[in-house]
């Protein structure tokens, strides 16, 4: 198992390198001159050629591409993502806290989403084809078609304004979590429970369940085997749900004025704050790679057959 983990980690390092390179490349593909963007962002009224060359030098933009990448990558490893074009502050001083806020929201939402997905998936699998199963699937079908920001807006209007129960914006107390977590849970559980359901159903039909029953094992014990097998497939999907949620809380944060990554990034995009965008992409891509590796490791821990394959 130990060797599996180290091999799996070794596998993700080159991937991170490629991702960081592509991220850096992307900014350099921009049709805009970064120096010009900086000057515009700082509100310099007259942009002269002289000023441009000076700024370029300050930013180190006159050096060759690969050297710039190397320096950037090295400093990124120390969480130094450069300075924001807009505020001039170090990127991490803004990105760090925002990431933490988004991460908290993500973890709480992921926990709720996973809980409901498993419960609904298991119930639907047990009642396959029955009214309950069909109605849950029918309702989830419509839920997946609802844009999460619209759902969020409707909830804000309904719960907070008409009924005046809960805070609708900001991140003040645990009560602030309720609405955004609800929106994310509804949007994602309606997709992910299907996965648990189909894994359960395919396991219900497996021979080992038949044999366990034929040996006279009580349903409780059979269910433990069933869950073990169904969830070991589902667990990797759920692991991957965390970075997916991290990335797509953007709209939900926007609706509920959550001071997280999403709000930060949308502002960065609108003001073309390249270092901020770069850092955002890199952090999330790293989260993707890390959780992907974690998913594989967890799955291998539960399924000995997979350990050989790497």
């Amino acid at each position: 198992m130990g060797s599996y983990i180290s091999r799996r980690i070794a596998l993700s390092i080159p991937l991170l390198a490629v991702i960081s390179f592509l991220t850096f490349l992307l900014v350099n593909l921009s049709p805009l001159d970064p120096a010009e963007v900086v000057l515009q962002a700082q509100g310099v009224p007259m942009i002269t050629d002289e000023l441009l060359t000076q700024t370029k030098q300050e930013l180190g933009l006159d050096r060759p591409f690969l050297i710039r990448y190397w320096h950037w990558a090295l400093s990124c490893l120390q969480l130094d993502f450069g300075h924001s074009y807009v505020t001039g502050q170090p990127v991490w001083s803004q990105l760090g806290p925002a990431f933490l806020h988004t991460f908290k929201l993500t973890i709480v939402s992921a926990a709720c989403m996973i809980f409901f997905s498993i419960v609904l998936g298991v119930i639907c699998a047990w009642r396959e084809g029955k009214l309950l199963d069909r109605s849950v699937r029918g309702i989830s079908f419509f839920l997946t078609a609802i844009p999460s920001y619209w759902l969020g807006a409707m909830l804000v209007w309904l719960v907070a304004v008409k009924l005046d129960w809960l805070p609708t914006s900001g991140m003040e107390s645990y009560r602030s979590y309720i609405l955004p977590v609800m929106v994310l849970t509804i949007s994602y559980a309606s997709i992910y429970f299907r996965f648990v359901r189909s894994a359960m159903i395919s396991n219900l039909n497996a021979d080992y369940v038949l044999y366990a029953r034929a040996c006279g094992l009580p349903e409780k014990k059979v269910t433990v085997h069933l869950l073990r097998n169904s969830l070991q497939v589902a667990i990797s999907v759920f692991c991957m749900a965390i970075p997916v949620l991290l990335g797509s809380t953007v709209v939900v944060e926007n609706i509920f004025a959550w001071p997280g990554l999403g709000s930060l990034t949308v502002n960065a995009i609108l003001s073309r704050d390249f270092p901020m965008i770069q850092a955002y992409v890199l952090v999330l891509a790293a989260a993707f790679v890390v959780f992907n590796a974690l998913a594989d490791v967890l799955q291998a821990a539960m399924n000995p057959k997979l350990r050989k394959d790497l």
């Binding site: 992307l26 805009l32 953007v250 995009i269 390249f274 992907n292």
Partner: peptide, 21 residues
């Protein structure tokens, strides 16, 4: 594999951020 290891939603944001809204 490399393309799929990028988070799609995030990369869309990145491309829009860099190429413009």
């Amino acid at each position: 594999d490399i393309m799929l290891s990028f988070p799609g939603y995030v990369m869309t944001l990145a491309i829009v951020g860099i190429l413009g809204v």
